[in-house]
Computed example of a mutant assay.
Amino acid sequence: MVKMGTFFGMSLGAFIFWQTMDKVHVWIALHQDEKKEKMEKEAAIRRMREELYQQQRERDSLA
Rank of each mutant, 00 (worst) to 15 (best):
residue 46 R to Y: 02
residue 5 G to T: 04
residue 47 R to T: 05
residue 44 A to D: 07
residue 46 R to E: 11
residue 20 T to I: 12
residue 37 E to G: 01
residue 38 K to N: 12
residue 30 L to V: 12
residue 53 Y to A: 13
residue 49 R to Y: 02
residue 36 K to I: 03
residue 39 M to W: 00
residue 20 T to N: 09
residue 18 W to E: 09
residue 62 L to H: 00
residue 39 M to N: 11
residue 17 F to V: 03
residue 62 L to K: 00
residue 15 F to A: 08
residue 2 V to I: 10
residue 57 R to N: 06
residue 5 G to H: 09
residue 21 M to A: 13
residue 32 Q to W: 10
residue 54 Q to C: 09
residue 4 M to K: 14
residue 50 E to T: 04
residue 55 Q to E: 12
residue 6 T to M: 12
residue 61 S to R: 05
residue 47 R to I: 04
residue 59 R to V: 07
residue 50 E to A: 08
residue 10 M to C: 05
residue 57 R to T: 05
residue 47 R to L: 12
residue 55 Q to T: 06
residue 45 I to D: 04
residue 16 I to E: 07
residue 25 H to R: 14
residue 38 K to R: 13
residue 53 Y to S: 10
residue 6 T to G: 11
residue 55 Q to M: 05
residue 54 Q to R: 08
residue 1 M to K: 07
residue 21 M to R: 09
residue 42 E to K: 12
residue 3 K to I: 02
residue 44 A to K: 09
residue 31 H to E: 13
residue 24 V to W: 10
residue 10 M to K: 12
residue 29 A to Y: 03
residue 29 A to M: 11
residue 41 K to L: 14
residue 44 A to E: 13
residue 17 F to Y: 06
residue 54 Q to N: 10
residue 35 K to T: 15
residue 32 Q to A: 15
residue 50 E to M: 07
residue 8 F to Y: 03
residue 21 M to Q: 12
residue 4 M to L: 14
residue 1 M to V: 08
